[in-house]
Nucleic acid binder design. Structure first.
Length: 586
RNA sequence: GCGCUUGUAGCUCAACCGGAUAGAGCACCAGCCUUCUAAGCUGGGGGUCGCAGGUUCGAGUCCUGCCAAGCGCGCCA
């Protein structure tokens, strides 16, 4: 419909060019919007307002000329100039009824588009350090990322979902050592747990698990473990120095190979937990990409060699630096430390080189908003590797601050005092959690009130949308109980009987669905879909309350059934993209 | 101090490349269940779009300055 109108308008522009009203050189981009106010018709164009200046005509007058140049079309009932120079289009309402037939034949495909043209696009999201279970802060990134990925797929992109596993680095050593110390406790050794270690219960559980399956294989005497270790912070020492010494001791006492084994068991345990957790949350990946593999296979070295060849690296104070400030970053960054270790950034450069090499035309990284300062250096790295940094879009997800009514819940992974994503799912359910997370624009700060989200009342908008779906199912059950059978073709032949305002409004809303999907995908804004679904559900509930569907007149009854079944289909398609269930009764 | 993000109804948030009278939900007030599920519907009150300038036919939206909040500014990840 929109496309058709755009075509007609551009024909009118050509006509005016031929008449000499418009200059030949004018190449307007034709803007056509849905009207907010139905008294303005169905669509409006501001073309005359834009062209008024170059055409040197009053906009209102130009609008009139454009209107008379627009070819006649059966679908258009009326075209009129309005306001300062808008052109309003009124569409034949019965022409819009065809959307019902269309939805009926397209079914789950309705709304899908090909704007993505099969372009390879990667969405990397969550990528939380595997040092503990996911918490509610990760939930937002998970819900947003997977909804976005689904939207992009629906828009015809070839989507690759990926989780970057930070399985190298100091945090992981701290975790492995924390588990080991708990393991030693299981063995009966008496050690003092470091203040900077991971204190969560899951650490103890993993330790217990390992102890049960391996017995005392990794046991070492507490006296050897603690011998000459610098004091921890509570004892007047430095907690960082203390834990680093413990890590080094673990490596010495276990030996490189056993330490690795132990490390790996801990990692696998946590990764498995994260993977299950996300799966149950409706989030699945094509690939889990290991940072350590990047280092082990020499990819980091290769990436740095490429930067070196391009003249982007230099040595200073015993470290190797990337001259990122030459490429838009605020300062240069270390990639290899004085001690010869790669920084996290070094492997991230290699990771992004790898992404580029895999041929993704668009790379989307979804990060927590606290990482925003990191964007310029990654963009700089991409430029230094010789690629266009526009291929990378970094989308930031603001942290959700957590509340229990009026009380703010503090969260810290180290202290182990945090609400896990799993707890949230258990309390609120997957559907409500996902909808709630995606409802807001990602870069908008968000207060997540557990009390509100756990209240299974109408305050949870997801129930409202699901209820609309369930109501259609209920009507179909009632139809059956009354001994009537649905006659789809009879209904289709009688769509013209759908003349009530509620019916026309519902039809118009359903017709908008493909436009909403496309826009939500291209703008990376899944919240547009949730808003749309709420509106659609509202249209349905209003209609439901105003009119009886199961009327005696078979023609009207079946026409109405076709209408509400279309609504049911659109609701199912939209909720499906959000990975939210469609209960048949509530 | 510098940088990024955000400021819209009492609260939580929308507003499609700049468009016509800024919209929802919750909360509040008043109505609607002998009729397909009241997790619903109808009506009502509630706004200096942080503040001040600027750009133009037109600004919540773009530009500048200021104010406020969050975050960032490691050879951490």
């Amino acid at each position: 419909m929109k496309q058709k109108l755009t075509e007609l308008i551009s024909q009118a522009v050509e006509t005016l060019k031929a008449n000499g009203v418009l200059d030949q050189s004018i190449q307007p981009s034709i803007a056509l919007d849905r009207c907010r106010d139905s008294s303005h018709g169905d669509y409006a164009s501001n073309l005359a307002l834009i062209l008024a200046k170059p055409a040197q005509l009053p906009p209102r007058k130009l609008a009139e000329q454009l209107i008379s140049a627009i070819p006649h079309d059966a679908m258009i009932v009326k075209i009129e100039p309005a306001g300062p120079g808008f052109i309003n289009f009124f569409i034949d309402p019965f022409a819009q009824h065809q959307i019902i037939q269309h939805i009926h034949s397209e079914r789950a495909e309705f709304g899908l588009s090909h704007v993505g043209a099969g372009k390879k696009i990667q969405v990397e999201f969550v990528s939380a350090n595997p040092t503990g279970p996911l918490h509610v802060g990760h939930g937002r990134g998970a819900a947003y990322g997977s909804a976005l990925a689904n939207l992009l797929a629906a828009a015809g992109f070839s989507v690759h979902r990926e989780y970057y596993v930070n399985d190298a680095g100091r945090q992981m050593d701290i975790l492995a050592t924390s588990i080991w110390l708990r393991y030693l406790e299981e063995c009966g050794e008496v050690v003092v747990f470091p203040s900077n270690g991971y204190r969560g219960d899951y650490v103890r559980e993993i330790a217990l698990d390992i102890h049960q399956s391996t017995h005392n294989e990794y046991r070492r005497h507490a006296s050897l473990v603690l011998e000459d270790i610098p004091a921890d912070e509570p004892d007047g020492g430095d907690k960082e120095v203390h834990i680093d010494a413990l890590i080094a001791r673990a490596k010495t006492l276990l030996g490189e190979s056993l330490y690795r084994d132990f490390f790996q068991i801990g990692l696998n345990n946590i990764l498995k937990d994260i993977e299950e957790d996300l799966h149950e949350f409706g989030v699945d990946y094509q690939q889990w990409f290991s940072e350590r593999q990047l280092i082990d296979t020499g990819a980091v070295e290769k990436a740095l060699a490429r930067l070196r060849a391009g003249g982007h690296l230099y040595d200073q104070n015993g470290a190797i630096w990337f001259a990122s400030s030459q490429l838009g970053d605020e300062k240069d960054r270390v990639v290899v430390r004085e001690n010869g270790q790669y920084t996290y950034f070094a492997s991230d450069i290699a990771y992004h080189m790898n992404k580029l090499d895999r041929g993704f035309e668009q790379i989307i990284d979804i990060w927590g908003a606290d990482h925003h300062g990191y964007i310029p250096r990654v963009k700089a790295a991409i430029k230094a590797l010789g690629a266009d940094d526009a291929r990378l879009s970094v989308l930031l997800v603001q942290f959700a601050s957590l509340w229990r009514g009026d009380e703010k819940v503090s969260m810290s992974t180290r202290s182990g005092e945090f609400v896990t994503l799993r707890q949230l799912r258990n309390e609120v359910g997957k559907d409500a959690a996902r909808f709630f997370y995606v409802m807001r624009r990602s870069e908008q700060h968000m207060d997540f009130d557990l009390k509100l989200a756990t209240s299974k009342t109408n305050e949870n908008p997801v129930f409202y949308v699901q209820y609309a779906y369930a109501r259609v199912c209920s009507v179909l059950r009632q139809l059956d109980e009354k001994g009537w059978e649905r006659n789809v073709s009879l209904g289709m032949e009688n769509l013209a009987l759908l003349t009530e305002d509620h019916e026309l409004s519902l039809i118009t809303h359903m017709a908008r669905y493909p436009e909403i999907l496309e826009r939500a995908a291209l703008q990376y804004e899944p919240h547009q879909l949730t808003s749309y679904l709420r509106e659609l559900a509202h249209e349905f509930h209003t209609y439901y309350n105003a009119h009886q569907f199961l009327v005696d007149d078979a023609a009207l009854r079946n026409a109405r059934l076709n209408l509400i079944c279309s609504a049911k289909q659109v609701l199912a398609n939209g909720l499906g993209l959000l990975n939210i269930t469609t209960p048949e009764s509530m």
